[in-house]
Design a protein around this nucleic acid. Structure first.
Lengths: 207, 207
DNA sequence: GCCTACATGTAAATAGTTACATGATTGA
DNA sequence: TCAATCATGTAACTATTTACATGTAGGC
Protein backbone atom coordinates (compact mmCIF):
# COMPACT_ATOMS: atom_id res chain seq x y z
CA UNK A 1 0.00 0.00 0.00
CA UNK A 2 2.57 2.49 1.19
CA UNK A 3 5.01 1.18 -1.40
CA UNK A 4 2.44 1.68 -4.16
CA UNK A 5 1.66 5.22 -3.04
CA UNK A 6 5.36 6.11 -2.81
CA UNK A 7 5.97 4.82 -6.33
CA UNK A 8 3.07 6.93 -7.54
CA UNK A 9 4.32 10.13 -5.94
CA UNK A 10 7.92 9.62 -7.02
CA UNK A 11 6.64 9.02 -10.56
CA UNK A 12 5.78 12.73 -10.63
CA UNK A 13 8.98 14.10 -9.15
CA UNK A 14 11.90 13.11 -6.87
CA UNK A 15 11.25 13.86 -3.20
CA UNK A 16 12.83 13.44 0.20
CA UNK A 17 11.15 11.48 2.99
CA UNK A 18 9.65 14.30 4.98
CA UNK A 19 8.05 15.95 1.96
CA UNK A 20 6.92 12.56 0.69
CA UNK A 21 5.03 11.91 3.87
CA UNK A 22 3.30 15.27 3.74
CA UNK A 23 2.15 14.70 0.18
CA UNK A 24 1.13 11.14 1.01
CA UNK A 25 -1.14 12.28 3.82
CA UNK A 26 -2.49 15.19 1.78
CA UNK A 27 -3.31 12.90 -1.12
CA UNK A 28 -4.71 9.92 0.79
CA UNK A 29 -5.73 11.67 4.00
CA UNK A 30 -9.45 10.89 3.64
CA UNK A 31 -8.93 7.22 4.26
CA UNK A 32 -5.33 6.69 5.37
CA UNK A 33 -2.28 8.22 7.09
CA UNK A 34 1.28 6.92 7.31
CA UNK A 35 4.01 7.47 9.90
CA UNK A 36 7.76 7.90 9.44
CA UNK A 37 8.24 4.58 11.20
CA UNK A 38 6.86 2.85 8.13
CA UNK A 39 7.95 5.32 5.46
CA UNK A 40 11.72 5.21 5.97
CA UNK A 41 12.02 1.41 6.21
CA UNK A 42 9.83 1.17 3.12
CA UNK A 43 12.12 3.53 1.21
CA UNK A 44 15.07 1.36 2.25
CA UNK A 45 13.35 -1.78 1.00
CA UNK A 46 12.48 -0.08 -2.25
CA UNK A 47 16.07 1.05 -2.66
CA UNK A 48 17.30 -2.51 -2.01
CA UNK A 49 14.81 -3.76 -4.60
CA UNK A 50 16.21 -1.27 -7.10
CA UNK A 51 13.01 0.73 -7.56
CA UNK A 52 14.41 3.99 -6.22
CA UNK A 53 17.80 5.64 -5.90
CA UNK A 54 18.78 7.84 -2.96
CA UNK A 55 20.74 11.05 -3.59
CA UNK A 56 22.15 12.67 -0.48
CA UNK A 57 21.62 16.14 -1.87
CA UNK A 58 23.00 17.61 1.33
CA UNK A 59 24.34 21.07 1.80
CA UNK A 60 27.18 19.96 4.09
CA UNK A 61 27.72 16.39 5.22
CA UNK A 62 24.30 15.32 6.51
CA UNK A 63 20.70 16.29 5.68
CA UNK A 64 18.14 15.67 2.97
CA UNK A 65 18.04 12.38 1.11
CA UNK A 66 16.20 12.75 -2.19
CA UNK A 67 14.66 9.64 -3.70
CA UNK A 68 14.09 9.16 -7.43
CA UNK A 69 12.32 6.43 -9.37
CA UNK A 70 14.45 4.05 -11.48
CA UNK A 71 13.31 2.40 -14.70
CA UNK A 72 12.52 -0.73 -12.68
CA UNK A 73 10.52 1.43 -10.28
CA UNK A 74 8.44 2.83 -13.12
CA UNK A 75 7.83 -0.69 -14.36
CA UNK A 76 6.80 -1.84 -10.90
CA UNK A 77 4.38 1.09 -10.59
CA UNK A 78 2.80 0.29 -13.96
CA UNK A 79 2.43 -3.31 -12.80
CA UNK A 80 0.70 -2.33 -9.56
CA UNK A 81 -1.65 0.09 -11.36
CA UNK A 82 -3.41 -2.86 -12.94
CA UNK A 83 -3.40 -5.24 -9.96
CA UNK A 84 -6.10 -5.71 -7.36
CA UNK A 85 -3.91 -6.52 -4.35
CA UNK A 86 -4.84 -8.77 -1.40
CA UNK A 87 -8.52 -8.65 -0.50
CA UNK A 88 -7.75 -7.56 3.05
CA UNK A 89 -6.78 -4.13 1.69
CA UNK A 90 -9.86 -3.75 -0.55
CA UNK A 91 -10.83 -0.26 0.60
CA UNK A 92 -7.34 1.16 0.94
CA UNK A 93 -6.17 -0.35 -2.33
CA UNK A 94 -9.12 1.09 -4.22
CA UNK A 95 -8.40 4.50 -2.74
CA UNK A 96 -4.76 4.45 -3.84
CA UNK A 97 -5.68 3.14 -7.27
CA UNK A 98 -8.24 5.88 -7.68
CA UNK A 99 -5.73 8.52 -6.58
CA UNK A 100 -3.53 7.52 -9.53
CA UNK A 101 -6.31 7.14 -12.08
CA UNK A 102 -4.90 9.85 -14.33
CA UNK A 103 -1.86 7.57 -14.80
CA UNK A 104 -4.05 4.55 -15.50
CA UNK A 105 -5.36 3.38 -18.88
CA UNK A 106 -9.12 3.84 -19.53
CA UNK A 107 -9.47 0.03 -19.73
CA UNK A 108 -7.86 -0.53 -16.32
CA UNK A 109 -9.90 2.32 -14.84
CA UNK A 110 -13.11 0.70 -16.01
CA UNK A 111 -12.06 -2.71 -14.72
CA UNK A 112 -11.16 -1.32 -11.30
CA UNK A 113 -14.35 0.75 -10.96
CA UNK A 114 -16.62 -2.10 -12.00
CA UNK A 115 -14.77 -4.61 -9.82
CA UNK A 116 -15.11 -2.32 -6.85
CA UNK A 117 -18.82 -1.84 -7.50
CA UNK A 118 -19.42 -5.57 -7.71
CA UNK A 119 -17.68 -6.21 -4.41
CA UNK A 120 -19.64 -3.42 -2.74
CA UNK A 121 -22.90 -4.77 -4.15
CA UNK A 122 -22.05 -8.20 -2.75
CA UNK A 123 -21.36 -6.63 0.60
CA UNK A 124 -24.64 -4.73 0.41
CA UNK A 125 -26.60 -7.90 -0.32
CA UNK A 126 -24.88 -9.86 2.47
CA UNK A 127 -25.78 -7.02 4.74
CA UNK A 128 -29.41 -6.79 3.69
CA UNK A 129 -29.63 -10.51 4.39
CA UNK A 130 -28.21 -10.18 7.88
CA UNK A 131 -30.47 -7.25 8.71
CA UNK A 132 -33.53 -9.10 7.48
CA UNK A 133 -32.73 -12.23 9.47
CA UNK A 134 -31.70 -10.52 12.69
CA UNK A 135 -34.83 -8.30 13.06
CA UNK A 136 -35.52 -9.16 16.70
CA UNK A 137 -33.07 -9.56 19.58
CA UNK A 138 -31.04 -6.47 18.62
CA UNK A 139 -31.01 -3.19 20.52
CA UNK A 140 -31.64 0.18 18.90
CA UNK A 141 -27.91 0.99 18.61
CA UNK A 142 -27.20 -2.14 16.61
CA UNK A 143 -30.13 -1.36 14.34
CA UNK A 144 -28.94 2.21 13.88
CA UNK A 145 -25.40 1.03 13.09
CA UNK A 146 -26.68 -1.39 10.48
CA UNK A 147 -29.00 1.21 8.97
CA UNK A 148 -26.21 3.74 8.71
CA UNK A 149 -23.77 1.16 7.39
CA UNK A 150 -26.14 0.01 4.69
CA UNK A 151 -26.85 3.59 3.70
CA UNK A 152 -23.10 4.25 3.38
CA UNK A 153 -22.59 1.26 1.11
CA UNK A 154 -25.58 2.26 -1.03
CA UNK A 155 -24.21 5.78 -1.33
CA UNK A 156 -20.83 4.40 -2.34
CA UNK A 157 -22.42 2.21 -5.03
CA UNK A 158 -24.32 5.20 -6.43
CA UNK A 159 -21.07 7.19 -6.54
CA UNK A 160 -19.31 4.40 -8.45
CA UNK A 161 -22.21 4.14 -10.87
CA UNK A 162 -21.90 7.83 -11.64
CA UNK A 163 -18.14 7.52 -12.13
CA UNK A 164 -18.60 4.57 -14.46
CA UNK A 165 -21.19 6.52 -16.46
CA UNK A 166 -18.79 9.44 -16.80
CA UNK A 167 -15.99 7.11 -17.93
CA UNK A 168 -18.27 5.61 -20.59
CA UNK A 169 -19.30 9.03 -21.84
CA UNK A 170 -15.67 10.10 -22.18
CA UNK A 171 -14.73 6.92 -24.06
CA UNK A 172 -17.65 7.36 -26.46
CA UNK A 173 -16.80 11.00 -27.11
CA UNK A 174 -13.19 10.12 -27.81
CA UNK A 175 -14.20 7.15 -29.96
CA UNK A 176 -16.53 9.31 -32.09
CA UNK A 177 -13.75 11.14 -33.86
CA UNK A 178 -13.44 14.02 -31.40
CA UNK A 179 -9.73 14.56 -30.72
CA UNK A 180 -8.80 13.53 -27.15
CA UNK A 181 -8.46 16.80 -25.26
CA UNK A 182 -5.41 17.19 -23.01
CA UNK A 183 -7.43 17.00 -19.85
CA UNK A 184 -4.60 17.26 -17.31
CA UNK A 185 -0.98 18.42 -17.39
CA UNK A 186 0.46 14.90 -17.13
CA UNK A 187 3.66 14.44 -19.04
CA UNK A 188 3.75 10.64 -18.64
CA UNK A 189 1.38 8.77 -20.93
CA UNK A 190 -1.21 6.46 -19.34
CA UNK A 191 0.05 2.92 -18.91
CA UNK A 192 -1.71 -0.24 -19.99
CA UNK A 193 -1.03 -3.09 -17.67
CA UNK A 194 -1.49 -6.82 -17.16
CA UNK A 195 -4.96 -8.22 -16.44
CA UNK A 196 -5.85 -8.51 -12.79
CA UNK A 197 -6.98 -12.08 -12.52
CA UNK A 198 -9.55 -10.82 -10.00
CA UNK A 199 -12.97 -12.41 -9.57
CA UNK A 200 -12.49 -15.19 -12.07
CA UNK A 201 -12.32 -17.74 -9.25
CA UNK A 202 -15.61 -19.42 -8.24
CA UNK A 203 -14.97 -18.25 -4.65
CA UNK A 204 -17.02 -20.57 -2.40
CA UNK A 205 -19.15 -18.59 0.04
CA UNK A 206 -16.94 -16.92 2.67
CA UNK A 207 -19.36 -17.70 5.47
CA UNK B 1 -10.26 -5.03 18.54
CA UNK B 2 -11.12 -8.67 18.00
CA UNK B 3 -10.59 -9.32 21.68
CA UNK B 4 -12.98 -6.52 22.59
CA UNK B 5 -15.64 -7.77 20.20
CA UNK B 6 -15.30 -11.35 21.48
CA UNK B 7 -15.70 -10.21 25.08
CA UNK B 8 -18.82 -8.32 24.05
CA UNK B 9 -20.42 -11.28 22.32
CA UNK B 10 -19.54 -13.74 25.07
CA UNK B 11 -21.04 -11.29 27.57
CA UNK B 12 -24.42 -12.19 26.07
CA UNK B 13 -24.02 -15.96 25.94
CA UNK B 14 -21.33 -18.67 25.75
CA UNK B 15 -20.42 -19.61 22.18
CA UNK B 16 -18.03 -21.82 20.23
CA UNK B 17 -15.52 -20.40 17.75
CA UNK B 18 -17.37 -21.02 14.53
CA UNK B 19 -20.59 -19.47 15.75
CA UNK B 20 -18.65 -16.63 17.33
CA UNK B 21 -17.10 -15.74 14.01
CA UNK B 22 -20.47 -15.75 12.25
CA UNK B 23 -21.98 -13.39 14.82
CA UNK B 24 -18.86 -11.23 14.75
CA UNK B 25 -19.12 -10.72 11.03
CA UNK B 26 -22.88 -10.22 11.15
CA UNK B 27 -22.53 -7.60 13.89
CA UNK B 28 -19.51 -5.71 12.58
CA UNK B 29 -19.73 -6.64 8.91
CA UNK B 30 -20.25 -3.06 7.70
CA UNK B 31 -16.73 -2.07 8.57
CA UNK B 32 -14.81 -5.22 9.50
CA UNK B 33 -14.49 -8.99 9.07
CA UNK B 34 -12.34 -11.48 10.94
CA UNK B 35 -10.85 -14.82 9.93
CA UNK B 36 -10.40 -18.01 11.95
CA UNK B 37 -6.67 -17.48 11.76
CA UNK B 38 -7.03 -14.59 14.16
CA UNK B 39 -10.06 -15.77 16.13
CA UNK B 40 -8.70 -19.05 17.50
CA UNK B 41 -5.32 -17.67 18.62
CA UNK B 42 -7.15 -14.77 20.22
CA UNK B 43 -9.41 -17.15 22.14
CA UNK B 44 -6.29 -18.98 23.34
CA UNK B 45 -4.72 -15.76 24.56
CA UNK B 46 -7.92 -14.77 26.29
CA UNK B 47 -8.08 -18.15 27.96
CA UNK B 48 -4.46 -17.81 29.11
CA UNK B 49 -5.30 -14.35 30.47
CA UNK B 50 -8.18 -15.84 32.42
CA UNK B 51 -10.95 -13.91 30.69
CA UNK B 52 -12.68 -16.95 29.21
CA UNK B 53 -12.99 -20.64 30.02
CA UNK B 54 -13.20 -23.35 27.39
CA UNK B 55 -15.67 -26.21 27.83
CA UNK B 56 -15.20 -29.10 25.43
CA UNK B 57 -18.93 -29.69 25.24
CA UNK B 58 -18.35 -32.54 22.83
CA UNK B 59 -20.75 -35.28 22.02
CA UNK B 60 -18.01 -37.90 21.94
CA UNK B 61 -14.31 -37.17 22.35
CA UNK B 62 -13.68 -34.27 19.93
CA UNK B 63 -15.79 -31.42 18.58
CA UNK B 64 -17.18 -28.12 19.76
CA UNK B 65 -15.31 -26.01 22.27
CA UNK B 66 -17.65 -23.61 24.01
CA UNK B 67 -16.17 -20.44 25.50
CA UNK B 68 -17.68 -18.59 28.46
CA UNK B 69 -16.77 -15.29 30.09
CA UNK B 70 -15.19 -15.37 33.56
CA UNK B 71 -15.62 -12.68 36.21
CA UNK B 72 -12.24 -11.27 35.12
CA UNK B 73 -13.47 -11.28 31.53
CA UNK B 74 -16.55 -9.27 32.46
CA UNK B 75 -14.33 -6.81 34.31
CA UNK B 76 -12.02 -6.52 31.30
CA UNK B 77 -14.98 -5.88 29.01
CA UNK B 78 -16.31 -3.14 31.30
CA UNK B 79 -12.84 -1.59 31.29
CA UNK B 80 -12.60 -1.60 27.48
CA UNK B 81 -16.10 -0.14 27.11
CA UNK B 82 -14.81 3.14 28.50
CA UNK B 83 -11.41 3.25 26.79
CA UNK B 84 -10.49 4.88 23.51
CA UNK B 85 -7.82 2.44 22.33
CA UNK B 86 -4.78 3.25 20.14
CA UNK B 87 -5.45 6.01 17.63
CA UNK B 88 -4.50 3.79 14.72
CA UNK B 89 -7.77 1.92 15.25
CA UNK B 90 -9.96 5.04 15.52
CA UNK B 91 -12.63 3.98 13.02
CA UNK B 92 -12.75 0.32 13.93
CA UNK B 93 -12.68 1.02 17.65
CA UNK B 94 -15.57 3.46 17.39
CA UNK B 95 -17.56 0.89 15.45
CA UNK B 96 -17.07 -1.79 18.08
CA UNK B 97 -17.83 0.63 20.89
CA UNK B 98 -21.01 1.70 19.17
CA UNK B 99 -22.04 -1.91 18.61
CA UNK B 100 -22.00 -2.40 22.39
CA UNK B 101 -23.62 0.91 23.33
CA UNK B 102 -26.57 -0.77 24.99
CA UNK B 103 -24.06 -2.17 27.51
CA UNK B 104 -22.42 1.23 28.00
CA UNK B 105 -23.38 3.89 30.54
CA UNK B 106 -25.07 7.06 29.18
CA UNK B 107 -22.07 9.09 30.36
CA UNK B 108 -19.55 6.92 28.48
CA UNK B 109 -21.80 6.91 25.41
CA UNK B 110 -21.85 10.70 25.37
CA UNK B 111 -18.08 10.91 25.86
CA UNK B 112 -17.40 8.47 23.02
CA UNK B 113 -19.84 10.13 20.60
CA UNK B 114 -18.52 13.62 21.28
CA UNK B 115 -14.90 12.48 21.16
CA UNK B 116 -15.52 10.83 17.82
CA UNK B 117 -17.22 13.94 16.47
CA UNK B 118 -14.32 16.16 17.53
CA UNK B 119 -11.78 13.94 15.80
CA UNK B 120 -13.87 13.84 12.65
CA UNK B 121 -14.25 17.62 12.71
CA UNK B 122 -10.49 17.96 13.01
CA UNK B 123 -10.05 15.65 10.08
CA UNK B 124 -12.62 17.64 8.09
CA UNK B 125 -10.79 20.92 8.77
CA UNK B 126 -7.39 19.44 7.90
CA UNK B 127 -8.94 18.24 4.70
CA UNK B 128 -10.59 21.52 3.79
CA UNK B 129 -7.19 23.14 4.28
CA UNK B 130 -5.46 20.69 1.96
CA UNK B 131 -8.12 21.05 -0.70
CA UNK B 132 -7.95 24.83 -0.56
CA UNK B 133 -4.16 24.89 -0.84
CA UNK B 134 -3.83 22.25 -3.55
CA UNK B 135 -6.35 23.79 -6.03
CA UNK B 136 -4.10 23.63 -9.09
CA UNK B 137 -1.72 20.86 -10.18
CA UNK B 138 -4.27 18.10 -9.38
CA UNK B 139 -6.15 16.06 -11.96
CA UNK B 140 -9.91 15.60 -11.97
CA UNK B 141 -9.73 12.20 -10.24
CA UNK B 142 -7.85 13.60 -7.27
CA UNK B 143 -10.34 16.44 -7.02
CA UNK B 144 -13.25 14.00 -7.20
CA UNK B 145 -11.69 11.79 -4.52
CA UNK B 146 -11.23 14.75 -2.20
CA UNK B 147 -14.74 16.03 -2.86
CA UNK B 148 -16.26 12.65 -2.12
CA UNK B 149 -14.06 12.13 0.93
CA UNK B 150 -14.98 15.50 2.39
CA UNK B 151 -18.66 14.82 1.76
CA UNK B 152 -18.35 11.48 3.57
CA UNK B 153 -16.77 13.07 6.62
CA UNK B 154 -19.41 15.81 6.68
CA UNK B 155 -22.14 13.21 6.46
CA UNK B 156 -20.57 11.28 9.34
CA UNK B 157 -20.41 14.43 11.48
CA UNK B 158 -24.11 15.14 10.81
CA UNK B 159 -24.95 11.57 11.80
CA UNK B 160 -23.05 11.92 15.07
CA UNK B 161 -24.74 15.23 15.79
CA UNK B 162 -28.12 13.59 15.41
CA UNK B 163 -27.10 10.71 17.68
CA UNK B 164 -25.83 13.13 20.32
CA UNK B 165 -29.10 15.08 20.15
CA UNK B 166 -31.07 11.87 20.65
CA UNK B 167 -28.89 10.90 23.61
CA UNK B 168 -29.48 14.29 25.21
CA UNK B 169 -33.24 14.05 24.72
CA UNK B 170 -33.31 10.63 26.35
CA UNK B 171 -31.26 11.83 29.34
CA UNK B 172 -33.53 14.82 29.82
CA UNK B 173 -36.69 12.72 29.63
CA UNK B 174 -35.30 10.28 32.18
CA UNK B 175 -34.05 13.11 34.40
CA UNK B 176 -37.48 14.77 34.44
CA UNK B 177 -39.05 12.19 36.69
CA UNK B 178 -40.20 9.82 33.98
CA UNK B 179 -39.28 6.28 35.08
CA UNK B 180 -36.53 4.83 32.86
CA UNK B 181 -38.35 2.48 30.52
CA UNK B 182 -36.81 -0.94 29.93
CA UNK B 183 -35.75 -0.13 26.37
CA UNK B 184 -34.07 -3.41 25.46
CA UNK B 185 -34.12 -6.98 26.79
CA UNK B 186 -30.64 -6.73 28.32
CA UNK B 187 -30.24 -8.67 31.51
CA UNK B 188 -26.88 -7.14 32.42
CA UNK B 189 -27.06 -3.60 33.77
CA UNK B 190 -25.09 -0.87 31.96
CA UNK B 191 -21.57 -0.49 33.29
CA UNK B 192 -19.91 2.77 34.33
CA UNK B 193 -16.23 2.74 33.58
CA UNK B 194 -12.97 4.61 34.10
CA UNK B 195 -12.39 7.92 32.30
CA UNK B 196 -10.67 7.65 28.98
CA UNK B 197 -7.89 10.18 29.27
CA UNK B 198 -8.53 10.98 25.63
CA UNK B 199 -8.05 14.43 24.12
CA UNK B 200 -6.74 16.13 27.25
CA UNK B 201 -3.24 16.27 25.77
CA UNK B 202 -2.29 19.47 23.89
CA UNK B 203 -1.33 17.30 20.90
CA UNK B 204 1.14 19.33 18.83
CA UNK B 205 0.13 19.43 15.17
CA UNK B 206 0.66 16.02 13.56
CA UNK B 207 2.01 17.50 10.36
C1' DG C 1 -21.24 -41.80 -2.14
C1' DC C 2 -20.54 -37.09 -2.41
C1' DC C 3 -21.05 -32.34 -1.53
C1' DT C 4 -21.79 -28.55 1.55
C1' DA C 5 -21.54 -26.56 5.76
C1' DC C 6 -19.78 -27.17 10.31
C1' DA C 7 -15.71 -27.06 13.18
C1' DT C 8 -10.81 -26.37 14.82
C1' DG C 9 -6.47 -25.22 14.37
C1' DT C 10 -1.12 -23.72 12.93
C1' DA C 11 3.00 -21.32 10.57
C1' DA C 12 4.64 -17.79 8.05
C1' DA C 13 4.12 -13.52 6.23
C1' DT C 14 2.31 -8.81 6.15
C1' DA C 15 2.03 -4.13 6.96
C1' DG C 16 2.11 -1.38 9.57
C1' DT C 17 2.25 1.63 14.66
C1' DT C 18 4.33 3.76 18.86
C1' DA C 19 7.87 5.46 21.31
C1' DC C 20 12.15 6.87 21.22
C1' DA C 21 16.51 9.26 19.73
C1' DT C 22 18.96 12.82 17.34
C1' DG C 23 20.15 16.84 15.06
C1' DA C 24 19.58 21.10 11.62
C1' DT C 25 17.22 25.38 10.17
C1' DT C 26 14.47 29.35 10.54
C1' DG C 27 11.97 33.17 12.25
C1' DA C 28 10.25 36.22 16.28
C1' DT D 1 17.79 32.28 22.49
C1' DC D 2 14.00 29.79 22.21
C1' DA D 3 10.34 27.42 19.98
C1' DA D 4 8.57 25.38 16.03
C1' DT D 5 9.19 22.92 12.16
C1' DC D 6 12.12 20.40 9.22
C1' DA D 7 14.49 16.07 8.74
C1' DT D 8 16.02 11.13 9.45
C1' DG D 9 16.02 7.13 11.56
C1' DT D 10 15.60 2.48 14.81
C1' DA D 11 13.64 -1.28 17.99
C1' DA D 12 9.99 -3.50 19.75
C1' DC D 13 5.56 -4.56 19.17
C1' DT D 14 0.73 -5.41 17.31
C1' DA D 15 -2.96 -7.37 15.15
C1' DT D 16 -4.01 -9.36 11.55
C1' DT D 17 -4.25 -12.22 6.94
C1' DT D 18 -3.32 -16.18 3.88
C1' DA D 19 -2.61 -20.67 3.02
C1' DC D 20 -2.59 -24.85 4.71
C1' DA D 21 -4.09 -29.07 7.33
C1' DT D 22 -7.62 -31.98 9.21
C1' DG D 23 -11.70 -34.00 10.39
C1' DT D 24 -17.17 -34.33 11.34
C1' DA D 25 -22.35 -34.17 10.40
C1' DG D 26 -26.27 -33.94 7.66
C1' DG D 27 -28.87 -33.92 3.41
C1' DC D 28 -29.84 -35.65 -1.24
Amino acid sequence: MLEFAVLGLLAESPLHGYELRKRLNALLGTFRAFSYGSLYPTLRRMQAAGWVTADSAGRGGRSKVVYSLTADGKERFAELLGEAGPSAWEDEAFGVHFAFFSKTSPEARMRILEGRRIRLEEKRERFRGTMGRARERVDRYTIEMHRHGLESVEREVRWLTELIETERTISNENAQGAPPEPRSPDSEPAVESAPTGASTKPKAKTD
